[in-house]
């Protein structure tokens, strides 16, 4: 993209083809003139970051509870984590609605919109999967499927959730902050 603005060996690209183009990120005006707004990091996204971080923490508590054979805590904290996942998804839906409805930020509004929705969208899809895992895990916890020695499914689900969480941190930095 900076190349469209004449960086590197593309001076003439800028001069002849896109003289008015300003390369900046978020790209609010594309070379063909579609305009949009950048998504601010300090509204819902920040809240969502907090939610996911908390959820990782609650899941770790649940894991410890499992190892200590503390069934109540296990069930509670696993369900809380799943609930946080759901809240995250709801907030993301609100964010998308706002973007499409009020900001004119859509999949079609240039590379910024494209990357924004592809990255957060695929992440959201993984959160959805993770949340389903967590709900299933909660149900299985309540049925007493896991013991302190025998809980591979729980661990696998937890790994997955932490992985999704870490990815979000990167997204938060690269999609919203930069």
């Amino acid at each position: 993209m900076p190349w469209l603005g004449g960086e590197g060996n593309n001076v003439m690209t800028h001069a002849l083809l896109h003289p008015d183009f300003i390369p900046q990120w978020p790209l609010t005006t594309t070379p063909d003139g579609t305009t949009t707004e950048g998504m601010s990091a300090w509204g819902l996204p920040a809240i969502n970051t907090a939610i996911l971080l908390t959820s990782s923490w609650t899941l770790t508590i649940a894991h410890h509870a499992l190892k200590e054979n503390n069934r109540n805590a296990l069930l509670n904290y696993t369900s809380i984590t799943a609930l946080l996942g759901i809240i995250f998804l709801v907030l993301q839906a609100v964010e998308y609605h706002h973007a499409y409805g009020e900001m004119g930020l859509t999949l079609g509004s240039g590379v910024y919109g494209s990357t924004f929705f592809m990255l957060t969208g695929f992440h959201g899809f993984h959160v959805t999967l993770g949340t389903i895992f967590l709900i299933v895990l909660s149900i299985r916890c309540s049925k007493g499927h896991f013991t302190d020695k025998h809980h591979f499914a729980f661990e696998a689900g937890a790994w997955y959730w932490h992985f999704v969480d870490v990815v979000w941190l990167f997204l938060f930095i690269f999609v919203y902050l930069v």
């Binding site: 469209l4 060996n9 593309n10 690209t13 002849l16 083809l17 896109h18």
Partner: peptide, 14 residues
């Protein structure tokens, strides 16, 4: 003249 350059829409190669 040993000149081969891709012509890419939206970009100018020299």
């Amino acid at each position: 003249i040993a000149v081969k350059k891709d012509a890419i829409p939206g970009f100018i190669n020299e």
